[in-house]
Design a protein around this nucleic acid. Sequence first.
DNA 1: GCTTGACCCTGGAGTGGCTACAAGGTTTGC
DNA 2: GCAAACCTTGTAGCCACTCCAGGGTCAAGC
Lengths: 145, 145
Amino acid sequence: MRIGELSRATGVEVETIRYYEKAGLLPPPSRADNGYRAYGSGHLERLAFVRHCRALDISLADIGRLLDFLDHPEAACGDINRLVDAQLDRVRARIISLQALERQLSALRRHCDEDLQVRDCGILQELVGAARGEACTCHERGAPA
Amino acid sequence: MRIGELSRATGVEVETIRYYEKAGLLPPPSRADNGYRAYGSGHLERLAFVRHCRALDISLADIGRLLDFLDHPEAACGDINRLVDAQLDRVRARIISLQALERQLSALRRHCDEDLQVRDCGILQELVGAARGEACTCHERGAPA
DNA sequence: GCTTGACCCTGGAGTGGCTACAAGGTTTGC
DNA sequence: GCAAACCTTGTAGCCACTCCAGGGTCAAGC
């Protein structure tokens, strides 16, 4: 299988496949006489695994760890559970922070619903006013990650 | 005000302030004889505005647009409303996608709660199996953004 | 006068996970 | 015989910072 076929079989872009190889997530395939990469079904399965984990927003570093586990089936699996737990914690924290953001943006949006001059736009007035509050450090620090 | 004082007054790191200047979000301040940046209250207010918008996860490009509006109060404000709407749409889409992710990860997590050998870990088995499904293109494409 | 330490300067590199491009070589189909 | 589609490597760009190297400046203490 050439890289284009692997790309079509998995829906992963050619450049991304080469990137995964350089990142150590896909073992370097053998090469045809002309230098083209030649993949087998093992590569396809491994690439599909990587993509499935990416769809779960697992980082490439963590995917590398999971692949190591796949290659060492006699090891203890506690670290896998902890890895998934940490991922879940990150996702849940991000949801909470985005929900707070959504409330703020919705409130902001309600300040102007017409097509006025900028000087009369309630949204911009609200942003400026809230920023003045922040300069007084009454807001918490840090963007919502 | 020197850059360190502005940093303490706003809670924004010195390097970030210089970065905003280079990005065109903060006007270049005047300089003291020794070359140190000298800020006034206008800079403080503008920086606070930028940080408040960043806390709403608005991109630097969009913040630049908002600052342009601040500098042109006679313009029409419809673009401001559209900008906030687009931001709100992005946030809501991200929340929905993260909630789907959270359900998937929770389901995955329930596949193993013990400290087994990797070969018996339900999480890894589930990941491998689901990935096989994905290679068959039964999954939708694309990570949750 | 000399050192120490806190501050400031510029410019460049690194982060993650790709994506896009340049500049070439190879294969395939008509 | 030629164009289009494919493959190769290497490099640069995206976002919003963050960190570092290698310097200059300034006030306090000895």
